[in-house]
Design a protein around this nucleic acid. Structure first.
Lengths: 342, 342
DNA sequence: TTGAAAGCGCTAACAG
DNA sequence: CTGTTAGCGCTTTCAA
């Protein structure tokens, strides 16, 4: 792999100085028009492009953003990443992606590795294990741009974009209620996550508004793995009076629940109705199709990136928290009727 | 965002020269033990880490790999990316991901952008539109490491890793045959893609081995979008004698077919059996669960990265083509029986 | 055992 | 209008 052409190479061939070439390429007013065109022609011929390492060194900027997500293979995250990438590209930035695999340990490592490679800042969704947030100190203290999305922390110091989780959960309860469901269970995620707290709050508020009693037997938690979700589902199904509807903290969890419910020979939604969160692609393909809260993932990515660039431009910019509206897409898993919806 | 500490900073604080610090940090034998420990202690205190831009400039290496995929949101690609990342990490490399969105135009742009950022090479899966391969000339001519996976081209000059598509398709035909299906249709992808050609070859060979006639009415093509797959499926269902089994070039296509078949009130597999390719995650969740050829995606990524580093180490290394074995996972969509499999 | 200087590719201030 | 010089952070001769 031979060296790409440099300004020096061009300068030598034209018998001018490096700075002349540099200036010509950037249309500096001091340079004569024919010098400019001569230089540009040669640059084009050798398809010269400036070395970003040299530029980075000079300007102290790498034009790279580090992005840390809990996993890479969920549609939710890949779609958000696409959204981030779009805005990054518009600004001439690239993104470096690291996956924490839902592990605190790996998240901490990723932060350090990314920082070592001199990304200009980080856009992060916390791992489900993460309860200690000290690994972000270095960023915050040094005014290194940082944005959280979905699973957030330190919201006083760090801008973030989240979905309106409480409102979404609240709407789901109303939807269940309107469709005749009364014993509504909730499979929650780890307690320390903001998404768990917010969705739980919405669940409780929804129950209250519908004047349904809060039955703690209908409230179970799981880590976000399918296996643990199955365990949680079993626990619910073992109740003396079974729930007639289940809300899951996300689609992965609710898919697992669905599997277990079918396994036990129960009908959805006749015996138990289901609603999920985040709207994974296959919601439409399962049988019955899954009612789900759709998150505007691509836009969440867009907004996160925009918040990021706000900080790049102005390190002391105000810490904004953006909340995105979700929408409830009603499919067959939560509606008892003869005329099925999509 | 203040500047990270540099060797210079450390040198100044210790009243020694920059080179001493540099050497001490790398345990150079010339440096006295206590100098070494003094330097290291300070470096640790300020958590110094070498500036990769400076290193890159010096060594002419960026330790970055460009990866171009048709899309980011399919499990198939994200899983391959994870596989690439794992090996890259072991070598201390980062990956820069670009998505072509199945567009030739965007693929060409991505190649140039990535090259501009001085990635050390590229790992690529061609977009479905790509028929002209000139944008890889620059890489090939300059011995810049390049590896293709899944959808490949110029296999004489460029190493690649693919699945054994022909064999996989052949096995599917036998599977259909053994389960009593005789009119086996195939929804193929764009003709110019190697995966289309290879899977078609396997399909034809399989038919021959089972002594089934080749009926060109049962052979349709589509671009890989769900909409076009639905169109192709309709065409098949309109045949005077309907196929009793359909093989799809990938799972996206077969999911679309599944939707359309259900739409028309036909039963799977009673009326029509289905088998897909690539084993997307939701194969197990659809009803009936989908028989599918599973690709070892993570390992494909691993191998692609290994081929990449072979070239990094030895630019003139032999051009190897790696073919990965697939496995046929039999589920309900292709088996007529009372006792259902998973 | 340590320091000085050059150079990787580039820009910008300062001279002509 | 163009050239020279210094410097971004680092390693590596060459000197001391």
């Amino acid at each position: 792999m031979k060296r790409p052409v440099s300004l020096k190479d061009l300068a030598k061939e034209l018998n001018v100085s490096i700075s002349t070439v540099s200036r010509a390429l950037r249309n500096h007013p001091d340079i004569s028009p024919d010098m400019i065109s001569k230089v540009k022609k040669l640059a084009y011929k050798y398809n010269y492009s400036p070395n970003p390492l040299a530029m980075g060194l000079l300007r102290q900027e790498t034009r790279m953003i580090g992005v840390i997500v809990p996993d890479l293979v969920t549609h939710f995250y890949s779609s958000i990443i696409s959204g981030i990438e779009q805005v990054a590209k518009q600004h001439g930035y690239y993104i470096l992606i690291a996956s924490s695999n839902e592990s605190y340990q790996k998240e901490v490592e990723s932060v350090h590795n990314l920082l070592r490679t001199r990304v200009e800042g980080l856009i992060v969704c916390l791992s489900q294990e993460t309860k200690n947030y000290d690994h972000f100190n270095q960023l915050i203290e040094n005014d290194i741009p940082l944005v959280f999305f979905d699973r957030v922390c330190r919201t006083n110091e760090v801008p973030s974009v989240t979905a309106d989780n409480a409102e979404a959960a609240r709407k789901i309860i109303h939807h269940f209620y309107e469709n005749g469901f009364r014993r509504i269970a909730y499979i929650n995620g780890p307690d320390h996550l903001n998404i768990s707290k917010e969705r739980l709050a919405g669940y409780l508020q929804g129950l209250m508004e519908c004047q349904l009693p809060v039955d703690t037997n209908l409230l179970v938690s799981c880590n976000l793995s399918p296996d643990d979700a199955i365990r949680a589902t079993r626990k619910l199904l073992l109740q003396p009076t079974r729930p007639d509807a289940i809300l899951g903290i996300n689609d992965t969890v609710i898919f697992a629940a669905m599997q277990e419910i079918k396994e036990q020979g129960l009908q959805i939604p006749a015996d138990i109705a289901l609603v999920g969160f985040t709207g994974e692609f296959h919601s439409t393909l399962v049988e019955p199709s899954l009612t789900s809260v759709i998150h505007p993932t691509f836009e969440i990515g867009n907004e996160a990136a925009r918040l990021f660039f706000e900080q790049v431009k102005n390190p002391k910019s105000t810490v904004r928290q953006i909340m995105m509206k979700t929408s409830l897409v009603i499919r067959n898993s939560s509606v008892r009727s003869t005329s099925n919806k999509i």
